[in-house]
């Protein structure tokens, strides 16, 4: 049984880590971009960003004044049991969000869409979002918090099979140029692309591709992995760098996730995870051990499964 206090405590630590400590994989990616950037203004911006991450860690201060919209991704092993059940879990995730908003502090960004009511704690109707997934084995719970920023770095379009890869490339470039002008989406970013599903599923896939995969990670389908490499290059050849200044650092990495869709369509979404690519992860084991990391390791073979049954477990494959 995983204690609910441990979950709340861990969740509060994660909120702070996400806001303050840039994940290593993104930092390395940004350093590599800074090494090859030769636009003078673009270069200056990247150096300032690198200093900013240091300042944030030294001062224990949020890396960006817009601390984004905190959300939670929760994953459980099949044997995980939570003290108090799912209701207690959701309560402490909301509590941790509110407490961290006051204590870090974070900016109270969340308001009612019409009445602009602000509880000053990033909690409200549907906020923070909490999404779930499960894995076939384990008595652990993984808590992932993502503090996604940016009002300008997301788009969706219904494409069709006849649009093909050329059409996908076109919408990808359209999106990047639109996000990137004047740097509104704060590039260089991790770009996530969702393909297929339905409109809502496509948005979810693309967002997860941007926020839940680390820089350098490749899709397990080799042809999609190849597209990811090619799209990263393509984005960096636009001629636009940080803040939309002339340069070549637009995309730190590109991740593509797919879902089966209606036979007539090919939905596509594009998401930019900005200069403040904030994510933090912890696994709480059944015996109470807590391990912190920055790789959500979200897209396992199980999450991308294509089959009716899940036959990989030896015990199950025998009976199959």
């Amino acid at each position: 049984m995983i204690s609910i206090d441990a979950i709340q405590k861990t969740a509060e630590t994660l909120m702070e880590k996400a806001a303050i400590e840039i994940p290593e994989d993104y930092l390395d990616g940004l350093k590599a971009a800074a090494d090859v950037e030769d636009g003078d203004l673009s270069s200056f911006v990247l150096q300032a960003m690198l200093e900013n991450y240091e300042a944030a860690k030294q001062d224990r201060r949020a890396m960006c004044g817009d601390t984004g919209c905190p959300r939670w991704y929760v994953k459980m092993g099949n044997e995980a049991r939570i003290e108090g059940g799912p209701i207690a879990l959701e309560t402490v995730l909301r509590r941790a969000t509110a407490n961290a908003t006051r204590n870090v502090p974070l900016r109270p960004n969340r308001v009612h869409p019409l009445w602009r009511t602000d509880h000053d704690n990033n909690v409200g109707i549907g906020a923070p979002e909490i999404e779930y997934a499960f894995e076939p084995e384990g008595d652990w719970i993984d808590l992932v918090t993502v503090h996604k920023g940016g009002l300008f770095g997301t788009d969706y379009r219904m494409l069709f099979p006849s649009d093909g890869i050329a059409g996908i490339k076109r919408f990808y470039l359209d999106s990047l140029v639109a996000f990137g002008k004047r740097g509104l989406a704060c590039q260089p970013a991790i770009i996530g692309i969702g393909l297929g599903g339905s409109k809502d599923a496509c948005m979810v896939l693309g967002k997860r591709a941007a926020c839940l995969r680390t820089v350098g990670n490749r899709n397990s389908d080799p042809r999609i992995a190849e597209m990811e490499r090619e799209f990263k290059e393509l984005g960096n050849s636009i001629g636009m760098g940080a803040m939309g200044f002339v340069g070549k650092s637009m995309v730190i990495d590109c991740h593509i996730e797919v879902g089966y869709c209606h036979t007539g369509g090919m939905q596509m979404s594009v998401h930019a995870f900005c200069l403040s690519s904030r994510r933090a992860v912890a696994r709480i084991h059944g015996d109470g051990r807590v391990e912190y990391r920055t790789d959500p390791n979200w897209f396992t073979d199980y999450q991308r499964r294509e089959t009716v049954e899940w036959n990989v477990l030896p015990s199950l494959s025998k009976s199959a």
């Binding site: 379009r157 649009d163 059409g167 076109r170 636009i238 001629g239 939309g244 200044f245 002339v246």
Partner: peptide, 21 residues
């Protein structure tokens, strides 16, 4: 800066095509 970037876009867009819808 936008004017400079735009001058390059024609080349980058080569080989893509507008959406059918």
């Amino acid at each position: 800066e936008n004017a400079k970037v735009s001058a390059n876009l024609e080349r980058v867009y080569a080989g893509t095509k507008p959406a059918v819808l």
